[in-house]
Computed example of a mutant assay.
Amino acid sequence: MVDLEAQTQTHLEKASTAEHGRSAELVVQDGPLRQSVLALAEGAELSEHDAPPAASILVLRGAIDVVAESGTTVLETGMLAEIPHERHSVKAEVDSVFLLTAVTDI
């Protein structure tokens, strides 16, 4: 069992002192299913990368922008969205933590 509130606090603290303003941990792995907690300090960014075959983001705290060629999706605490099926980046507008759910092989 994973305590997401505890993970949120732990990774926010780590991101705030990390050189690139990020902290992440794989918290669930079951076959092709992966769930990771990621924290980004305000202004930190995950540079452009490929999307997995299927994925979603649930914002646990803060506000992030998911930026893709098709547009920018602004997500705030409690919001859940699919990740676009294209290259994208993620930027934190404020100190933020999100749960990334990805299926790595379909």
Score class of each variant (00 low, 15 high):
77 T>K: 08
22 R>L: 09
67 V>H: 06
62 G>Y: 09
60 L>M: 05
48 E>N: 04
21 G>T: 07
46 L>K: 09
50 D>N: 06
53 P>M: 04
30 D>N: 10
83 I>K: 03
19 E>P: 02
80 L>M: 09
43 G>R: 14
37 V>L: 02
50 D>W: 01
38 L>T: 15
17 T>P: 00
16 S>Q: 14
54 A>M: 09
35 Q>W: 11
78 G>N: 06
68 A>N: 05
65 D>F: 05
16 S>N: 12
36 S>V: 14
57 I>N: 01
79 M>V: 09
35 Q>S: 12
66 V>M: 04
61 R>I: 05
73 T>R: 05
46 L>N: 07
68 A>W: 07
87 R>D: 05
47 S>C: 02
50 D>S: 07
69 E>F: 04
62 G>L: 02
66 V>D: 07
59 V>E: 01
48 E>H: 06
52 P>R: 09
89 S>P: 01
19 E>Y: 13
53 P>L: 08
85 H>W: 08
32 P>K: 10
36 S>R: 09
50 D>Q: 04
46 L>T: 10
42 E>V: 13
62 G>T: 14
74 V>T: 15
20 H>L: 06
20 H>S: 05
43 G>K: 14
69 E>M: 02
23 S>A: 15
89 S>E: 04
84 P>I: 14
31 G>A: 13
30 D>E: 12
67 V>C: 08
75 L>N: 04
27 V>K: 12
44 A>V: 11
55 A>Q: 11
46 L>R: 08
65 D>V: 10
24 A>T: 10
18 A>N: 14
57 I>C: 00
21 G>N: 04
26 L>A: 13
65 D>I: 08
82 E>C: 03
63 A>T: 15
51 A>S: 15
69 E>I: 06
15 A>N: 09
26 L>C: 09
43 G>C: 13
77 T>N: 04
56 S>W: 14
86 E>K: 03
67 V>N: 11
87 R>E: 08
86 E>M: 06
64 I>K: 02
18 A>H: 13
47 S>R: 10
52 P>E: 10
44 A>E: 12
16 S>Y: 15
42 E>T: 15
34 R>S: 08
80 L>G: 01
33 L>E: 13
84 P>R: 10
38 L>A: 07
15 A>M: 08
22 R>F: 05
28 V>G: 00
66 V>R: 02
24 A>P: 00
85 H>T: 13
18 A>S: 14
84 P>V: 15
26 L>S: 10
54 A>L: 11
74 V>R: 07
72 T>P: 00
42 E>D: 10
24 A>F: 11
18 A>D: 15
72 T>C: 02
46 L>Q: 13
82 E>T: 13
37 V>Y: 08
81 A>S: 15
28 V>H: 03
70 S>L: 02
70 S>M: 02
79 M>R: 12
74 V>C: 00
16 S>V: 07
76 E>I: 03
25 E>V: 11
25 E>C: 08
40 L>A: 12
18 A>P: 03
